[in-house]
Design a protein around this nucleic acid. Structure first.
Lengths: 229, 229
DNA sequence: ATGCCGCCTTGATCCAGGTCAACCGCTGCT
DNA sequence: AGCAGCGGTTGACCTGGATCAAGGCGGCAT
């Protein structure tokens, strides 16, 4: 639908972190690059917090970002992980509803909202592209709702590993930049349950865990079977 | 941001069922109405099924629609309920990932996808409006993920009642067109748990249940407290 | 090197919500 | 009227995953 751009990076995401269609029109993307500024964050540094003004959006250059929310009683929910090429922080309201934090060291491009809206007015194709990304994210959010609402712990973890492998273009060895705690909060499980499921997959020979942050998919079929009834 | 339209109906939704911003530009909406056709469905009739071609989208005129997915083993997940004014079936792919069914008797407007895309090309403002709707739905999907991933049964049901009241503009008496089963599949609970939580709210005087499909919110504060820690 | 600290892993126990089952009450059919 | 069927409600019991607790292990500072 859209002409292939040579900027190379995808405009991925999901819920205020939009997922990639094809590529946006070349001219629009070049113009976008003009208004963005580069910025880096250390491990666990906050990129923005809940209730901060939502006056800009971001694209991950390198590293991993988590989009999350903390409830009053300490429960935490991670809405999304964003990897290199993914966009996040595209919100409608004036204030952030979620916070964004660096999982490891992270570099991002930062785009002011005002300039982007002006750009959209000049280049209507851009609106269509963002619309596309939003709809794609919506579909992703849908499948996550299904996962959170109706899937068992094993199904969630299997699904997570496969998603991770796909999004990071990994065939056999997947590196897992986030902590077990982060995984738990992303999947609606506790850290202990995540560990136990991973261990049981390992015992069954489905995966190997050379280090906690590197997982080998030994039997992808078994994983896919575990990921969906 | 957008001029108020006098078409009266909102373009609501969430995940392939988009939520309302303000109103789209008048001219664009008038043009939209031109290409739509009206159609009615009986209770539990399928409007479209999974894997059907996604060649059109819909707007609810009257009644309630459920957007859902059935897993192989019979587990069902309801992604969204759509009420009068809400849009649904705006998908990116060629095939439906979810099905849409009439909760009760339903009347919808049906819009061909091709004609809509041509209209968007002519009226770029429309793309921006759809983008807006998609982002709004994304925010809604986010909060549902939090609910499904991290909230207790009581919190889910309280949240559901408040959401229902708000979306249907009800102050004290909320009518509940869907079955307990539908509610369970929407909230990631069983029918029995939904019943039990409703009964416990009733026992505490938070709500009254004159009929199964009509609920009185007697103590909204208590409900709001139950809906969020 | 050594000791501390944070993250991961594993085991033991608990409980919220699922499962199974009975029954109620309404509706529609004979 | 009588009865069958279906959705809703309630009770008894079970279980998957949470919670609580105890190490293990690697990295880093002293």
């Amino acid at each position: 639908m859209f002409r292939q751009s040579n900027l190379g990076e995808r405009l991925d995401s999901a819920v205020s972190c939009l997922s990639p269609a094809g590529s946006a029109p070349f001219a629009a993307l070049v113009a976008l690059e003009q208004i963005g500024g580069r910025r880096s964050y250390q491990q666990d540094e906050e990129i923005y917090g809940e209730l901060d003004p939502a006056d800009c959006w971001y694209k991950v250059v390198s590293g991993t970002v988590r989009i999350c929310k903390l409830l009053a009683d300490g429960r935490r929910h991670i809405a999304e992980f964003c990897f290199a090429g993914d966009c996040f922080g595209i919100d409608l309201g004036r204030e952030r509803l979620f916070s964004a934090e660096a999982v490891g060291d992270v570099t991002v491009m930062r785009f002011p909202r005002g300039a982007t809206e002006r750009l959209i007015d000049e280049q209507p194709e851009l609106a269509r592209h963002i619309c596309d990304m939003a709809l794609r994210s919506l579909a992703h959010a849908q499948s996550r709702m299904l996962l959170l609402g109706r899937m068992t712990a094993s199904e969630r973890v299997a699904h997570f590993l496969l998603e991770l492998a796909e999004r990071r273009d990994a065939r056999r060895f997947v590196d897992v930049p986030m902590s077990r705690n982060d995984i738990g909060d992303y999947l609606g499980l506790t850290i202990e349950t995540v560990c136990r499921v991973l261990s049981s997959f390992r015992r069954e020979g489905t995966i190997a865990i050379p280090t906690p942050h590197r997982i080998e998919l030994c039997d992808r079929d078994a994983l896919e079977a575990a990921g969906e009834g």
